[in-house]
Write a protein that binds this DNA or RNA. Structure first.
Lengths: 338, 338
DNA sequence: TTGAAAGCGCTAACAA
DNA sequence: TTGTTAGCGCTTTCAA
């Protein structure tokens, strides 16, 4: 990499002081027009570009926000992550901010990454995604009073801004729909229960069963790892029962798709022999006619960005806590019991 | 955000100089054990964490690599981008690096973003994705001799490290397969021709037609914008011809999927009435039985990261230029002509 | 209108 | 073993 031009270089070249050069380039109005012209042309000629790191150190701000993906292997490829990332990235770019991304598996290394970018002052704010009931990341950020917004709630009694979707209400509505179609044996492939959304969605399932007078049977509930493969494995177990379910609802679309795969392998027709539904409405869901609950993840990313930027600017948030109702999309994967 | 502890704070607290504190914490062995103990406990107590920005300024390195996504609207959500990002992010994290991401539409703003992170010294290296025939980004990086690797070749006569897939050979093989099935009217939905992969894949189409003795008809070629919607629109035009094609090949899966949608709307059965094929093998492709060409994008991301890190370390690359052969996956979307 | 000086927080060469 | 000094490149206060 060739030698860089700095303010010093220009100062030397033009004979002015570093201070004047800095001010001329920054557009201050207390610089003589002639001087500014000289300095600007010199800067141009030398290919000057400010060293952002130095500026950050001085200004104590980075114009960057951070996201640490709770990644488990290639899970980064999860459409959920890409969508939220897209929403955040696109919106943040408009304001001239950048996004710093790290991928860490949940646990000590993850928290260490938070400490690193927070204490190390690498970012001005953080977006926390996929919250957990006992979320140490949020506890930490609140304690440090560092600007952040979260996609999701927690069980912690802490005050912080978030957007969440009402997973309980959504799942409740879905199960109700199935019950109305006549399903009585509705199985559920749950998400890990330490994840807030996993807990909430499962609660919706439970509540719907209760209110429709159906029995909650533990053998009809499997916990999956949110992947397609996990969904497939869970479906296998559910179908192996002596009294197999007539409908299988998964806590996310990926597992629902895995379930559909498994049904196909077994020669069962989704939507006829067995109904399947998911949650998220990822692109593939529409293509395969999967009944699911839609939440506008991309747009939520937008909103989270706006909230975070406002926070960074020290503004007060008009609506710091939002819970969105997901929209039930009935598609071909669901029908009356066989 | 509460007050931060710096080296100075600890120096004041312990009575040692900033230098000694720095060295004690950095683990230099020319510090008395007793001193180190005192300093470390003080640091611990004060919750000290080094200011990474300051360190970067001093060390002239950021332990960060940059990726600027050529985004057009929510295109960030393109599985291609997510996958490559996943591959890069996961691999880079292992080495303790972070990823800085910006999203800019191709054009002046994009180049400006490159200049900003390069000249501004915000990153130690860059991954350029989705190269173009006349790629100004690459011309710029080469000229600045800044460490970078590219996913894709260019038409420029420049020496730089890249991994690319052989889009020409892949498409060639696919078209050949269709011809062997008996297709004579094979239409093509091309990618924009300024994109290297778009150009190459189209070339494969052309060459295959020639070699099988089929005619290249301009009216059988549409250029799409790589989205589902674009594929759908292009398919519409192709099907409106007096002599419609019996097979439609798209330059990427998303457009192929759009084509399938359109066929379905028209009541045509993909794979029977009309054959459809794509390129990329995104997750949905398998689910929908789309014939396509697979390239291991995620793993390519891994490799690009490794190459880039080696470059940053000043190492010599054993194999700086790699061209991978995509794998043809025949699925149900393709059959003999109706 | 311009410049000197201080400082952001850190590292490192050199001296003591 | 420890401290002094200088410097990374920038911004900003204050004085001239």
């Amino acid at each position: 990499m060739n030698q860089r031009a700095t303010l010093k270089t220009i100062a030397k070249a033009t004979g002015y002081s570093i201070t004047t050069v800095s001010r001329a380039l920054a557009g201050y109005d207390d610089v003589a027009e002639a001087t500014r012209a000289v300095i600007q042309s010199s800067a141009q000629q030398l290919g000057y570009f400010p060293n952002l790191t130095a500026r950050q150190l001085q200004k104590q701000r980075t114009d960057t926000i951070g996201i640490i993906l709770p990644s488990v292997g290639p899970r980064f490829a999860d459409p959920y992550f890409s969508l939220i990332l897209a929403g955040i990235g696109d919106e943040i770019a408009v304001s001239g901010y950048d996004v710093l991304i790290s991928a860490r598996p949940p646990g000590p290394a993850e928290l260490e990454a938070y400490r690193s970018i927070v204490e190390g002052r690498r970012v001005d704010g953080i977006v926390v995604i996929r919250t957990r009931l006992e979320d140490e990341r949020i506890a930490y950020l609140v304690e440090r009073s560092f600007p952040f917004v979260a996609f999701g709630r927690t069980a912690l009694d802490l005050d912080y801004p978030y957007i969440d979707e009402d997973g309980e209400a959504g799942t409740y509505e879905l199960i109700l729909h199935l019950a109305q179609l006549g399903h009585e044996r509705i199985a559920y492939i749950a998400a890990p229960q330490d994840l807030t959304f996993g807990y909430n969605r499962h609660k919706g399932y439970q509540r719907a069963l209760e209110e429709t007078g159906l029995v909650y049977r533990p053998e009809y509930v499997e916990v999956g790892d949110l992947t397609r493969r996990g969904g497939s494995a869970a479906a296998e177990k559910l179908l192996a029962q002596s009294m197999p379910p007539t409908a299988i609802v998964a806590a996310n679309d990926l597992m629902a798709l895995g379930t559909m795969n498994r049904l196909q392998q077994k020669g069962l027709k989704t939507g006829f022999d067995i109904s399947v539904a998911g949650f998220d409405d990822i692109p593939t869901a529409e293509a395969l006619g999967l009944t699911t609950l839609n939440q506008p993840i991309y747009r939520i990313g937008h909103q989270l960005s706006q909230m975070l930027l406002a926070l960074i600017e020290g503004q007060h948030l008009a609506e710091p806590k939002m819970v969105l109702k997901p929209k039930l999309l009935i598609r071909a994967s669901v029908g009356p019991p066989a």
